[in-house]
Design a protein around this nucleic acid. Structure first.
Lengths: 263, 263
DNA sequence: GTAGCATTCTTGTATAGACAAGTTGCGCGA
DNA sequence: TCGCGCAACTTGTCTATACAAGAATGCTAC
């Protein structure tokens, strides 16, 4: 049973980890990197025992760790299967369209429709916690995946943030990457998700019929001091994207809202 | 080692539970009922071995279960200690339509369209992690606020959960309240939110034109052991409700998904 | 063809023993 | 008295084995 010695020696520090951790890590990597898709079967205990040259208890310990995370599931008699990739990215990554696209292996794109300073709207002043006399910057872009239009992004930045973005090539680099390079980090974000019908403008921009269902995501991004960084309304094609949320009892973050207008 | 025979025989059904579960349950009770206060030390492995007359592995399994819940913590060399009372109230409140409506000061209502046992669909078997031969219970309801239809709820329960709901008045009391009264608690939930157009059926049920935008929320509710409790697809009138999510960097739980079908 | 049974596979539960690693506390020596 | 080190204790890691229970599969009998 000399299988351990034949493991990839790449990560230098890894050889001090217990065996079951290394097995769990390898399986977790397989899941995160897509070699084991959700719904797929994990190797059976016997296979893992042979592959890693360890005892059954060790294999079971490894899989128990993954199960405790909710990453995989199984029950007596049935092969373990992948339930879903663990969500562990930093918040900026989660919000950024660019990071999202890259993670999917798609080519993110952006077509800037409008970018410049302008007087602030009442809604924006409210959302960004600014006086109605303040100046702000407005950015409107079409976001694409492999050239397919997926989302319309309409963002308002406070003046000092917008100024930072001046001169940046907003059709390529992520706004978040740009801001992070200047020490601005999104620490908290509030989202409000709703469904709307496409009006004539959005239908044209997204190349869909009028009235098609759209996923509208309103976002307020705040820094560590709860200072508003951006207020954005992203409008996704309903047939191209949806959102996934995990709530644990420890971090209850999803709430329903009633739109009073419709009564 | 005849300690098992001397256990309290009170709960009649408990004797079919595995040993480690019974030990974990007893410790959990000790914590919940204050006999073991936060900060206090748990019995050592040796004490538990003697007290229950089991082997070390079994005791370790019991404590591993508590640790996975975050109820207790320990590390090598140090005695296990209580970290906090196990959570028994939480996430259900956020998810429950009834709680939501009450919080808004509205009168929640439900009209049961269908409730009963039936063979499981492939999707449901997948979501609930059940064999395709399993039986399940399907519940379909129209949810109302002050008699206005707001949402269609289509839920599938595993057999043992559905059986519990038999006889309950599902047009009044919250399903979650009903389950909680029986010791079933939603500890984790995964939501997937998307926008769809109303088909003829849903348009009729919600009293809106065909093609109207709807907010579709697919939810998998899991208990502390990540065992699926329910799989539900809730369809909201787009003009009556939206969702709010707060993300902090500490608890990043929102992810975007790409719907591959639309390319 | 199909229902039902039996086999086989996979996971769950439990025990026992061995060694490693970290913590705590006691006692001894300076 | 103070500090160091050893010893005892506690948990972590790992192996090996045995039997039970649920699931999937294939085969047989009808």
């Amino acid at each position: 049973m000399a299988a351990i010695a034949e493991w990839p020696q790449s990560d230098a520090g890894a050889d001090r980890l217990p065996l079951y951790r290394r097995i769990a890590d390898e399986l977790r990597r397989d899941i995160a990197e897509g070699r084991l898709a959700p719904g797929a079967s994990l190797p059976t205990e016997h296979e893992l025992i042979r592959r890693f040259g360890v005892s059954r208890g060790t294999v079971r310990q490894a899989r128990a760790a993954l199960r405790a995370e909710g990453t995989v599931g199984g029950s007596q008699g049935r092969v373990f299967s992948v339930k879903g990739a663990p969500i562990t990215q930093p918040l900026g990554e989660l919000i950024s369209f660019t990071s999202w696209a890259s993670g999917l292996g798609r080519q993110p794109g952006a077509r800037v429709i409008d970018f410049g300073p302008e007087p602030i709207s009442a809604d924006a002043a409210d959302a960004l916690d600014l006086p109605s006399s303040a100046r702000c910057w407005r950015l409107e872009r079409i976001r694409t995946l492999d050239t397919l239009p997926v989302m319309i992004e309409r963002t308002v930045f406070p003046d000092e943030i917008g100024t930072m973005l001046q001169g940046a090539d907003l059709s390529i680099r992520s706004v978040y990457a740009e801001l992070e390079a200047r020490g601005i980090v999104v620490a908290t974000a509030r989202h409000r998700i709703s469904a709307v019908a496409a009006d004539a403008t959005d239908a044209g921009l997204l190349d869909i019929p009028r009235g098609s269902p759209l996923l509208r995501v309103e976002r307020r991004g705040l820094d560590r001091d709860h200072q508003p960084i951006e207020w954005s309304i992203d409008t996704y094609r309903g047939d191209r994207a949806d959102f996934e949320i995990e709530n644990s009892a420890a971090a209850p973050t999803l709430a329903r809202r009633l739109d009073e207008g419709g009564a």
